[in-house]
Structure formats: C-alpha cells, structure tokens
C-alpha cells in the first residue's frame, strides 16, 4: 500500500511511460515515479534531463554512481544498498558498466580510502555535506573542488547531487519504501 496513490499506467503521458518503463525491473522505484507523475507535465522533463545527464554527461558514469550511492546511504537507503547485487546500484535496475565494487564498499569511510582517488573523495564530500550540512561547504572546499574539476563538471556533479538529495529522498519516504526492499 502506497501512502500516495501512483497514477494509473493509462494516465501516463508517452514520455512519462517511457521513463517508467526503464524501471520496470524495480517496481517500487517505478511506483515512486508514478506518484511524482501526478504532475507529470513538470516532472517528466526534469527526470528525462536527469537520466540523460547521468548517462551522457562530461563526468565518468562511475563517479556519478558512487555519488548516488553515497546519497542513498545518507537518505537511509543503506539496506537497499547492501542488498543490491554486485553490479547493481541503488534505485537502478541495470548494471552500471565499470562500477568497481571495491570502491563501492569504501564509500562509507571514503575519507580514509586508499583506492578512491582525490576527485572521487571530493565528489563524495560534496554530496555528503550538501545533504546534511550545507553550511560546511565553504570557499576553501570549493577551491579544492575547482582544482580537481572544471566549472561545467562541478555543475553536472551538483545537478546529480541536487536530484539525489531533493527528489530521491522522497522515494525513501513514500510507501512502499524504495529503500526497504
């Protein structure tokens, strides 16, 4: 039983139905999208752009997935992360090419990891701080970030983080809880 009723499949726009179809292997995630779809004329273009950015942006797909997993952990999706199969990230039905599971295992203690590189650690810190302590992101942090990333890369990273903290947090709250699978 969901706390908010997803809209019926027949009521989905063509574009929204295409997005939901991508997650048919993950029914709870698809349900979350169908709840947002009550306002699909607004949500569909936001989500289509987000998925396109995930798959086709300037940054490595793996880096963005590591960030998403970090946010999922902070959104209280840890159980979901742990239950995900080795090549499967949280809230995503298909394998992520090249996702290094040794790195995934170090996300929780990324600060002291010997295998995550400086760019990955900075990206994880950006995601962590924006989610729980945005006031901790000071000029010094952005100096470090700009040493490792170009401005367009920072903006792309920021969008991935913003969607994770903003929208995907709802998927952790609505029943059936995506994170409690």
């Amino acid at each position: 039983m969901t706390v908010i009723n997803p809209i019926e499949d027949e009521a989905l726009s063509t574009g929204m139905a295409t997005l939901v179809e991508k997650f048919k292997g993950d029914p709870n995630y698809a349900n979350g999208l169908k709840i947002f779809a009550h306002k699909q004329e607004v949500f569909e273009p936001i989500w289509a752009a987000y998925l396109n950015m995930l798959e086709n942006g300037k940054l490595d797909r793996e880096l963005k997935e590591l960030v998403r997993i970090k946010i999922a952990q902070n959104n209280d999706c840890s159980a979901y992360v742990e239950k995900s199969s080795l090549q499967r990230s949280p809230m995503r039905p298909e394998p992520v090419p090249g996702l290094d599971q040794a790195k995934v295992a170090e996300i929780g203690s990324y600060e002291i990891s010997d295998i995550l590189d400086r760019r990955e650690k900075l990206a994880l810190k950006f995601a962590e701080k924006l989610g729980i302590e945005p006031e901790g992101l000071d000029d010094e942090f952005f100096d470090h970030l700009r040493q490792a990333f170009s401005d367009p890369e920072i903006v792309e990273l920021a969008h991935v983080i913003a969607v994770g903290i903003g929208f995907e947090r709802f998927l952790a709250v609505w029943e059936p809880r995506v994170c409690a699978i």
Binding site: H38, I46, L130, V163
Partner: peptide, 22 residues
C-alpha cells in the same frame, strides 16, 4: 494525492537546487 505530489516537487527543487544556489 495530486496536491501532495505537486508540493513534493516544489520541496524537492528547493531542497536540492535551492541548497546549491545557497
């Protein structure tokens, strides 16, 4: 339900992108 979904989108944008602007 539709009103909650609409409100949720507004909140999502403010939490995600609003923090970034900050």
């Amino acid at each position: 339900d539709a009103e909650i979904a609409e409100m949720s989108i507004v909140i999502s944008v403010c939490i995600g992108w609003g923090r970034l602007l900050s």
